[in-house]
Amino acid sequence: MVMGIFVTACSGSDDDSGDIKNEEKVIHKAKFTVKIEGEVESSDFISFVFASADIKENTLWKINGVEQTNEMGVSLGDNEFSGGTTTYVVENAVPLQAISVGVQVLNFGAPLKVSYKAEIEGEVLQDVSALELIAEEDFTKQYSYSPE
């Protein structure tokens, strides 16, 4: 199963200065916290995809405080949740005009608990806490965020 996300940004102006004309029309602070509890098995499918576009910047994201150089989209999958770290914080590194997040967790084995929290400009917009998925259950969502 493949989840594709494509977000584009375009401008109707010939001004190539790259400056965002209306600064309040961007997301200054986005923070996403994702967590998987339980043993992730090889048959399970986990995908958290965060995407955006910027005409001036190529480094848009931080994962657990580390900038993801030259990445306009980042993803966390099965490997990131096997063993070790099971909680990740994804944040924007620059102001963004829109953000798209795809979440898909397909459980085929032992129970898993899924948590997803989205905070935009300090306001919690989604908070899924420890949603338990038993064998053959899934959690699939597509979220879009833009400034108001």
Rank of each mutant, 00 (worst) to 15 (best):
V103K: 11
S75Q: 03
E67S: 15
A30I: 13
E67K: 15
A30P: 03
V128H: 08
E91H: 04
E71K: 15
F50E: 05
F45T: 06
N70Q: 13
V89D: 05
P111C: 06
I120Q: 04
D15Q: 06
K25F: 01
D78I: 09
S129D: 12
L96M: 03
Y143E: 03
F81R: 07
M3A: 10
G83Q: 04
K25Y: 12
D15W: 13
P147N: 04
P147C: 11
L60M: 06
E41G: 03
G73H: 14
L133N: 01
T8D: 01
T8H: 11
S75E: 08
V128K: 08
E71S: 11
K31G: 00
T86I: 02
M3S: 14
F6H: 05
A110Y: 13
V66G: 12
I46V: 10
D15E: 10
K141H: 08
Q142L: 13
S43D: 08
T86G: 00
Q97C: 05
E121P: 01
F108W: 03
V124Y: 11
N107E: 08
A135Y: 01
S42D: 13
D15G: 01
T87V: 15
Y116A: 08
D19H: 08
L131E: 03
E39W: 08
A30V: 07
E39N: 13
K31E: 01
V103C: 11
G73C: 02
I36K: 02
S52E: 06
I99W: 02
Y145I: 13
G4C: 05
G102K: 00
E137H: 03
F108S: 11
T140W: 09
K21N: 04
I134H: 14
V7P: 10
L131N: 08
E37N: 13
P147D: 11
